[in-house]
């Protein structure tokens, strides 16, 4: 039985419930990025509800802040807050569980939402870690559409300028953004070469494979003298053909029929992973 893969589809179900109850959310990117979050939060990062004030805890920034529903599902599962509360309150009047990360909530370090902010902030965190000789590692997850923001490349420059090998960026490379494919809207290929040219170590993986992601993050830990970017090649909407690789599902809210089919498809993935 592949426990974390089972978990990934169970948490996807929580995300779907959150979005249906809250009548909004960024479903496609949630489905593509959640395996990255699970690899980081269960296999890699030195974080937890009991160490939120630990100065040496690892730092995580969800720069593609619109995928906050996936982050809520993972943080809830790690014990930061109850999932029932998130599903009940997400996007409701007066709720703390808003549609982008907010650091008034436990487990969230920085507010985001506007794209292109996470990498420069992560560079600052990694610099602080170097100054303090802290074992802290810094992780930042960006979307591939987000890479059109110039500030991403400002951060990419400074991360390599300062040899920040304690910094690991992830690109959720699902190749879709709201108006169509990334290559149609504003092309990012050759993405590996772009980051390499900026002085980064680049690792290309199947971003919906938790074992492969975990291996990539472990490799990144051993790379010295330069930051690493893990290009997580994912399927937007991964988990059900109803959503997969469909641009309108960037933020579509499932209707009842779609909801039933998606949950059935996610259950089938769970069964398949249990029998692995």
């Amino acid at each position: 039985m592949d426990n974390l893969t089972v978990k990934s589809f169970e948490l996807r179900k929580n995300v779907i419930d959150m979005i249906v109850a809250g009548k909004g959310g960024h479903i496609g990117g949630d489905m593509s990025v959640i395996d990255t979050l699970i690899a980081l939060y269960y296999n890699i990062m030195n974080v937890g509800p009991d160490m939120q004030d630990d100065p040496n805890r690892d730092m995580f920034i969800m720069s593609k802040g619109h995928s906050v529903e996936a982050l809520y599902a993972v943080l809830a599962d790690r014990g930061y807050f109850p999932i029932e509360q998130v599903i009940k309150e997400f996007s409701q009047f007066g709720s703390e569980f808003i549609g982008h990360p907010n650091n008034q909530l436990p487990g969230i370090e920085m507010n985001s939402g506007s794209l292109g902010h996470g990498l420069p902030v992560a560079v600052g965190m990694a610099l602080a870690g170097k100054m303090d000789q802290s074992p802290r590692r810094v992780y930042v997850v960006m979307g591939d559409g987000e890479l059109a923001e110039g500030s991403v490349w400002e951060g990419a420059m400074s991360a390599s300028q300062y040899n920040l090998d304690n910094l690991c960026a992830v690109v959720d490379r699902n190749r879709l953004q709201i108006s169509g494919t990334t290559e149609y809207v504003m092309h990012q290929d050759p993405l590996e070469a772009r980051f390499a040219a900026f002085g980064w170590n680049v690792i290309d993986v199947n971003g919906n494979d938790i074992d492969a992601l975990t291996a990539a993050f472990k490799t990144a830990q051993s790379v010295k003298g330069k930051p690493t970017v893990v290009i997580a090649n994912t399927i937007k909407g991964y988990g059900s053909p109803v959503m997969e690789n469909k641009a309108p599902w960037h933020h579509h809210v499932p209707n009842e029929e779609e909801y039933q089919q998606i949950m059935k498809d996610l259950d089938a993935h769970i069964e398949e992973a249990k029998n692995r």
């Binding site: 100065p55 730092m59 370090e109 920085m110 292109g116 902010h117 990498l119 420069p120 902030v121 992560a122 560079v123 600052g124 965190m125 990694a126 610099l127 602080a128 870690g129 100054m131 303090d132 802290s134 802290r136 810094v138 110039g150 500030s151 400002e154 951060g155 420059m157 400074s158 300028q161």
Partner: peptide, 27 residues
């Protein structure tokens, strides 16, 4: 050791300052 050059990149300058501050620095 307490100085950071951002280059001509003001967005990076302020983002880095925020990251440093989040980790206990007076940026």
């Amino acid at each position: 050791d307490q100085s950071v050059e951002a280059g001509i990149a003001e967005q990076d300058l302020v983002g880095m300052a925020a990251g440093l501050a989040k980790c206990g620095k007076k940026a």
